[in-house]
Design a binder for these strands. Structure first.
Length: 920
RNA sequence: GGGUGCUUAGCUCAGCUGGUAGAGCAUCGCCUUUACACGGCGAAUGUCGUGGGUUCGAGCCCCUCAGCACCCACCA
């Protein structure tokens, strides 16, 4: 079947993914004779959809995966999805609310059923989208963090850590989200600078008259104050230490303590201490043995530990009431505006309340040390390197990890409580009961801890839980191939949440690092470098880039789901401005090429549809080059059989040589994760060398060459193209497969698919420096001629005579090619240029004269300008060379280079001067 | 408060261990030349953020300042 006249991604993409997948090409290999390559997909939220960040990461992962597969490695790209505890539970709760139902009314069992139903319904969306992008994961091994094997691993890890004393239950001050009503880890708290107030309150002294003034941003917490503190060396307050103040409103006596935590410079130097609701105060409370009352309910209303008057009030209402009462009592000294870092829960945006609460924790210090060591010793390397510091800094200051969540969606904690409240942990109830019995305690099945584990707890084990662990036999079999993973590709935002924890747990349970390399990819921004966000309306859906989308549909989907009218308006405006005609269909290959090209080792990647358009053009270029080659090779003798009479021309040897260099460049770039360099090498080889020059050179060889050289040219055309397709396949899999299916047979290559064909390997012997120099010379002459034509205003189609002098002997052999490419009617090669009024260009490869009408004065002026520039360059070079320190100290090669430059320029100038003289 | 990164052509970015600045897009000419107008050919464009230092030589190394972005942190 003929190739269509131009590249249309839609016509080809849908056919190849099912072809690859159905033939099992994505399946992990287990051949002991081969090297292995493996990569873990950061598991996306199971009910989520593919966004630009995913598409970008996966492009990089797929490039590496396909590349290593073609190189013959055992390859495992391990996919999976995450149950995303809080996020998914929230989505389903919202759905229930919309239907007038509620989680609590349904009850735990029924609610969890509904979440599973939602997971089943939407769970394959993102994996379907991944297939559209071309991601070649081994779907036969796809996991879900709550599937049976992963759940077993979670229980096993929990039990073992508990038995090792690394998981414990304790009453600690934790971050409480009063909206979601669960504990969250410190990583799930985000602090933002917000405008608040700083209030100064008077606390009357218990004895005598007078008061101390304390400053606070949260006056309502005074209901839980159990002390005030001053700095031990603060002379102003030394006399008060050990005495008491009368806590207003509550009318309790609380001590004045001395603690070095107090900053004498801030406020009055006196701090109110609320150990139950502040992390600093908690420490002070511990040091001074203070009571630590909790004054809030789980939904952050004032509880029974505060005076009756405030009970039942929300935190913020209580603040108002407290302030009003203090003011009435004359105890409010001042109110000032104050900027503070407000800690908010990442998921609900609620102001987090520190609460003293019973939770499960993982003791991190030891594991963190191991995690630091393995990176320090180079067992795991970050790319770019600078992220090592970020990793180190976090691990060095790590806190114990609060892993219990008061949610229903997730892995329920495998702990049961004895009647006296002692927790017993086991792989199942029976095991827990045995422990309890041994300890002489009675427990019941229904007294299982209701909490679930942090989502990140389960995803922290995927490096080994996806290789069969805790099944020893399977794990031993598979880890030899795929642990550690070769590389982890992910965003910096989850270095702490995920990467560090995987490294730590894998060290703990497999005794080995999880990854050889950790590649931290850039964050995808819009073309102007702004963060992509729904409310700004500057998000782009990767599927829309692949498939295209009309303006109306784009407007619709960009504004739906936005709650605020102002956001809707901003988004709509932006869509109208940026995408007045919607988004064209660029296809997965162009999208992937764009990602690869923009993938420098920076922190951000500004996604520009214009770039994408350029790379779709590239695909079209490749497509049409293939059409040309097929047109010339189909049904013709391409000289494949041994002993075929085929004479390789210099141009043929040149393009083969350039191909070796392109292959070397791509392979080297991929080894260093320089996807941009790899993409550029492919782009430049295909466009600038193969299409712009070789196809043109080939045309004249096919038109004028003898039988044997035509045969060699056809063979070179088809073989270089075939190798180029393989070279490019990891980046642009669809179009290369489509074209390869047609090209490969003609190139004498068999095989069912390009994705299982071998990756091109450069051969040193095929690098031909002489041919490269020769073609470089030809290009120089052609360029000079083209330049003169354009400067002289010669119509592109017009053929003009050309004279060539002072050129290497080989030039005559390229006469036909030069004539065709530079559109020359007659080419005269001679010792000297004829003396006539014609434009001349001097190049190292010869002097070029076009026989065209000229304006003598204008030509003279042009040459004078050239001469002036040359003179300046000559003066510069002479200056350098006459500087003794330069000649002395600079390396000989540099001095030589400068001398050569001087000589070249001087000779060029002489020629130009001569030509000016001829013009009279 | 601590830390990191960035500042190069109108825009987005490359620039290897220091040797006289590059790409894509955009711009401006001229072209329906038989693979490709998703094309061809040509052109223009930069005191490489500031000030200093090291060096024969600095976009690259060192210091200063300025601007931008991000991360971590319990200052009431």
């Amino acid at each position: 079947m003929e190739l269509a006249k131009s590249f249309d991604p839609h016509a080809i993409e849908p056919r190849w993914y099912p072809f690859w997948e159905s033939r099992g090409y994505f399946k992990a290999g287990f051949d002991p004779a081969k090297q292995s390559f493996s990569i873990q997909l950061p598991p996306p939220n199971v009910t989520g959809t593919l966004h630009m960040g995913h598409a970008y990461q996966q492009t990089l992962m797929d490039v590496l995966t396909r590349y290593h597969r073609m190189k013959g490695y055992n390859v495992l790209w391990q996919p999976g999805t995450d149950h995303a505890g809080i996020a998914t539970q929230m989505v389903v709760e919202r759905q229930l609310e919309a239907k007038g139902e509620s989680r609590r009314a349904l009850g735990r069992e029924e609610f969890v059923k509904r979440v599973w139903a939602w997971k089943e319904e939407s769970g394959s969306t993102i994996t379907r989208q991944m297939r559209r992008l071309g991601s070649s994961c081994d779907w036969s091994r796809e996991y879900f963090t709550m599937d049976e094997p992963r759940s077993r691993a979670v229980t096993e890890v929990f039990v073992r850590l508990f038995e090792a004393g690394l998981i414990y239950r304790g009453k600690r001050l934790i971050h409480w989200d009063p909206v979601l009503q669960t504990a969250v880890s410190d990583l799930e708290v985000e602090s933002r600078e917000e405008n608040g107030s700083l209030w100064q309150l008077r606390y009357p002294l218990a004895e005598g008259t007078g008061h101390l003034v304390v400053a606070t941003t949260r006056p309502e917490t005074m209901l839980g104050d159990t002390a005030v503190a001053v700095h031990p060396e603060d002379d102003r307050y030394a006399a008060f230490v050990g005495k008491q103040v009368r806590l207003p409103l509550s009318d309790r006596l609380i001590p004045i303590v001395a603690d070095a935590y107090v900053d004498r410079e801030f406020g009055t130097g006196v701090v109110k201490i609320t150990p139950g609701h502040d992390f600093n105060d908690y420490q002070v409370g511990v040091r001074h043995g203070l009571p630590m009352p909790c004054i809030f309910t789980l939904d952050a209303k004032v509880n029974e530990n505060a005076p009756a008057k405030y009970q039942g009030l929300d935190r913020f209402a209580a603040r108002k009431a407290v302030l009003a009462d203090l003011e009435a009592a004359g105890l409010l000294e001042s109110t000032k505006p104050h900027k503070l870092m407000q800690p908010r829960s990442q998921r609900s945006d609620a102001v987090v309340e520190p609460m003293l609460s019973d939770q499960w924790f993982v003791c991190m210090v030891g594991m963190a040390k191991a995690g630091l060591d393995v990176v320090a010793k180079g067992g795991t390397q970050f790319v770019p390197e600078e992220w090592t510091k970020v990793y180190n800094q976090w691990l060095a200051n790590i806190q114990d990890w609060c892993i219990s969540r008061q949610l229903w969606w997730g892995h329920q904690i495998p702990a049961w409580y004895a009647d006296d409240g002692t927790p017993f942990v086991g792989r199942d109830f029976e095991e827990a009961r045995r422990h309890a019995t041994a300890a002489g305690k009675a427990i019941r099945d229904e007294r299982r801890d209701p909490d679930v584990l942090d989502t990140w707890f389960s995803s922290a084990f995927v490096p080994f839980s996806t290789l069969g662990w805790p099944d020893e036999a399977q794990f031993e079999r598979e880890r030899r191939f795929y642990l550690p993973s070769t590389v982890m590709i992910t965003g910096f935002d989850i270095i702490f949440f995920w990467v560090a924890r995987m490294i730590m747990t894998t060290l703990q349970f497999a005794g080995e690092t999880a990854f050889r390399d950790v590649y931290i990819n850039a964050i995808v921004r819009d073309a102007e470098g702004n963060k992509m966000s729904k409310s700004k309306g500057n998000t782009i859906d990767p599927l829309d880039v692949i498939d295209g989308i009309g303006f109306e549909a784009l407007l619709d989907k960009s504004t739906q789901g936005l709650m605020l009218a102002s956001h809707k308006e901003t988004a709509a405006k932006r869509i109208k401005r940026e995408f007045p005609a919607g988004i064209e269909a660029y296809g997965a290959d162009a999208l992937r090429f764009t990602f690869a090209s923009l993938s420098t080792l920076g922190r951000t990647l500004n996604f520009d549809l214009k770039r994408c358009e350029g790379y779709r053009s590239f695909c079209n270029k490749l497509w049409n080059a293939t059409r040309f080659v097929l047109m010339n090779c189909e049904g013709k003798d391409v000289g494949l059989e041994a002993g075929a009479n085929a004479t390789m021309s210099v141009a043929d040897r040149w393009i083969v040589s350039r191909l070796q260099r392109a292959e070397t460049a791509v392979i080297g770039a991929l080894a260093e994760y320089r996807f941009d360099v790899a993409a550029r090498a492919v782009y430049e080889f295909v466009w600038d060398e193969y299409c712009d020059w070789y196809l043109e050179l080939a045309k004249s060889q096919l038109a004028a060459g003898d039988e044997a050289s035509q045969r060699a040219t056809r063979r070179t055309l088809i073989r270089v193209l075939e190798a180029t397709l393989r070279l490019a396949h990891p980046i642009i899999p669809f179009i290369t497969e489509e074209l390869w299916q047609k090209v490969a047979p003609l190139a004498g290559k068999s095989g069912d698919s390009i994705m299982v064909a071998p990756y091109p390997q450069p051969e040193e012997a095929k690098v031909d420096v002489a041919a490269e120099a020769e073609i470089a010379g030809v290009k120089e002459i052609v360029n000079a001629a083209r330049n003169l034509r354009s400067t002289m205003g010669v119509a592109p189609a017009a053929r003009v005579p050309m004279y060539l002098a002072d050129c290497p002997g080989y030039m005559a052999a390229h006469a036909e090619a030069i004539k065709a490419i530079a559109r020359i009617s007659e080419l005269h090669v001679a010792e000297e240029l004829p003396a006539r009024d014609a434009p001349v260009t001097v190049t190292p490869a010869g002097r070029v004269m076009l026989h065209v009408e000229i304006d003598r004065a204008a030509e003279k002026a042009r040459l004078e300008k050239l001469a002036a520039r040359l003179e300046a360059e000559i003066a510069n070079a002479k200056g350098k060379l006459s500087n003794p320190t330069f000649v002395d100290k600079a390396p000989a090669a540099v001095v030589e280079q400068e001398k050569k430059r001087l000589a070249d320029k001087e000779s060029e100038l002489a020629q130009i001067r001569a030509q000016i003289a001829k013009l009279g």
